[in-house]
């Protein structure tokens, strides 16, 4: 397991550093927007705007986790498909499904760490200036966006590992509406009760990469 994580780390370390900087930078920018409004018009105004106009102040983050996840999928899995390098990986004395699971687990854990750091940053700052209901509302609004990042990563892994181009295009056609689920409800905290189910759905998308690996082992091609 250590060796598999080592390989994935070598592939993705610079990108992960950049992804963490951009995600945390955008989070900090969103929080600074709140701080600026609070400085200019007082914290009561922030509360009022949040309640009366459904403003969450972190909308800059909406599609960023998805972009970060999709790019991580490309950075991690495109080198595996370069000249069918995946053959080397699946030839190692390790169960193919376990290998693919560990590879995607690495990416999922890395994304989860970056997104958790962003959430923690928001939590630490916001709890000092907002009521629990209000900062909870911001975090619940951002939660499906972060889940979309993980789902985006897992679906890109599925598409990248697919050995046939025609099927890849079909997979992409399925992936787009699948990812759209995470952006269906624009109202703050709209996914509240649905979030646990959405999280389970997100983790289930990890199994899609198994399908591609199985098709790769079967020798499917265009």
């Amino acid at each position: 397991m250590k060796a598999i994580f080592y390989k994935e780390w070598l592939k993705t370390r610079w990108y992960l550093l950049l992804a963490a900087a951009v995600t945390l930078g955008t989070t900090a920018y969103s929080l600074m927007r709140i701080a600026r409004v609070a400085d200019m018009k007082g914290i009561a105004h922030v509360w009022e705007v949040m309640l009366s106009r459904d403003v969450v102040f972190v909308d800059a983050l909406e599609y960023l986790p998805l972009l970060v996840g999709v790019l991580l999928g490309l950075v991690q899995f495109m080198p595996e498909m370069y000249h069918k390098c995946l053959k080397l990986t699946l030839h190692l004395p390790y169960k193919p499904i376990r290998m693919i699971t560990l590879m995607t687990a690495f990416g999922t854990a890395a994304l989860a760490a970056i997104f958790a750091a962003a959430c923690l940053t928001m939590f630490v700052y916001l709890r000092g200036i907002l009521a629990p209901e209000l900062y909870g509302r911001i975090l619940l609004t951002a939660a499906p966006w972060f889940l979309a990042g993980i789902a985006g990563y897992l679906t890109v892994a599925w598409i990248c590992l697919e050995p046939a181009w025609k099927r890849r295009v079909a997979d992409m056609a399925v992936a787009v509406p699948m990812l759209w689920i995470y952006f269906l409800a624009p109202a703050p905290a709209a996914y509240g009760a649905f979030l646990p189910l959405l999280a389970v759905f997100t983790l289930l998308t990890a199994t899609l990469a198994w399908l591609s690996a199985a098709r790769f082992k079967e020798g499917k091609q265009d």
């Binding site: 080592y6 390989k7 070598l10 080198p79 000249h83 069918k84 390098c85 080397l88």
Partner: peptide, 30 residues
């Protein structure tokens, strides 16, 4: 059983992103 089988892919493909040292460290673990 794949421990007992060495595979060379057409074009001597190996992990391009690794160095001489890293690739040895990676494979040796298996």
């Amino acid at each position: 059983l794949r421990r007992r089988i060495g595979l060379l892919i057409e074009g001597h493909v190996q992990y391009q992103f690794m160095t001489i040292e890293q690739i040895e460290r990676f494979y040796s673990a298996f």
